[in-house]
Amino acid sequence: MDEANYKALPTETDGAPDRNPYAALADLAPAAAFVRDVTGRYVWANHAYAHLYGTTRDAVIGRHLADLDEPADVARFLTLDQEVMTGGRPVRHTLTYQRSDGCSGQAAGYRFPVLWGAARCVAGIYVDVTDYSQVLDQRHRAEADLRTLRDHSGLACVRLTRDGRVSEAGIAVAEVLRVRLSDLIGLPADTLLAETSERATLHRAWDDLITGRRRSARVSAVLVDAEGWQRRARIRLSAVCDTAPDMSKVSRVSGIWAVVTHLGLRDQAQPSLTAAQVRILALLAAGGSNADVAEELHLSRQTVDYHLSRLRDLLGAATRPALVARAYVLGILSAQDWPPRSATAARPSSLV
């Protein structure tokens, strides 16, 4: 092996720390560093390395690996040392080791061949990544739980990017829209919505969420599936914010989760109704007679009769009970409120 591959490290005999800044730097560096000879005996270690074992550097230097590690770890570490010394080049490793508290730890770093004085040795410098690995594992488990919940809860939900494209989607929403899940990813959300009056309200709510003026919003929309059929939906929008490292700074909105909380039945075409016609349906659903509707809306009986005739044609319903039932089925009236009101009403107490 070419001895030129070995790097000479400054030793404590090379001079006092004030005359040897490299030794002082290595000794006080937060990364754990060591030098061992061919037998596995420590010829140098810094404070951070000793801390991993719950001891001091003076208690480590001069001792053998077997004095600090379990037998299985000793054999593994000596094998790694020999590979480095034989190969004559740095090798990156991620290692597990026994911590001073008895728990298993993880460290990532390099070990490389060095000359310590005239002796060939192996040096290593590692960073303890135990806490990072645990947090990463917890995050992966949380993400797996979220995917399971998203895909098997039956909720129709999508995650949208800031520019309104689908970045994640649950199985349920793909079934509602009659598309393959893979085809849904990347689509602009607007292509999934019918051209209705609710779009303007939805866009205003979206702008508020993206700019951070609101954290969540409830909106109504009409979804259009791949076959052209429509379903009226009530949707909860929630802003997803990046974690701000500096708590004094406002975190940036990275996307929006959209969850369908109520879904009307599938219909080939949603009728376009006027505000007066929706109010008439709400009054009928509350049990009002034609005379009650005329009085409430300040309309003549003939005008009410005309609207009812138009509604029968638009909704395909021959009777008053059928009109009311059809209005609920199509999602025109909210199924969660009493007295009856429009599903797109801005205020729960409003009839429209």
Rank of each mutant, 00 (worst) to 15 (best):
V74E: 13
A318W: 07
A24R: 04
L28Q: 14
R320M: 11
A8E: 14
Y306R: 12
S216D: 13
A275D: 15
D2I: 05
E198V: 07
D128Q: 02
A317G: 08
V38N: 13
E175Y: 07
Y110E: 14
S309P: 03
S309N: 14
L265R: 14
E175L: 11
G264V: 06
W116L: 10
G170W: 01
P321E: 04
V135S: 10
Y306D: 09
A221Q: 00
S104H: 09
A26S: 13
Y110L: 14
D73K: 11
D246C: 05
G331S: 09
L187F: 02
I332R: 03
S167G: 05
D2L: 07
A275F: 10
A345I: 02
M1Y: 11
D267M: 15
R310H: 11
R63W: 06
T96A: 15
C157G: 03
F77G: 05
L181H: 04
V224R: 00
H203R: 15
Y6M: 08
A66T: 06
V259N: 12
G255F: 01
F77Y: 12
A50I: 01
F112V: 10
V224Q: 08
A108F: 00
Y328K: 02
R162F: 00
V259K: 05
A32Y: 02
P339Y: 04
S248V: 08
V60W: 00
A318K: 09
R266P: 05
L283D: 06
L333G: 00
V91T: 04
G102R: 00
R312W: 05
R76K: 13
T79W: 07
D128T: 04
S334R: 06
P71S: 04
Y328F: 10
R111Q: 10
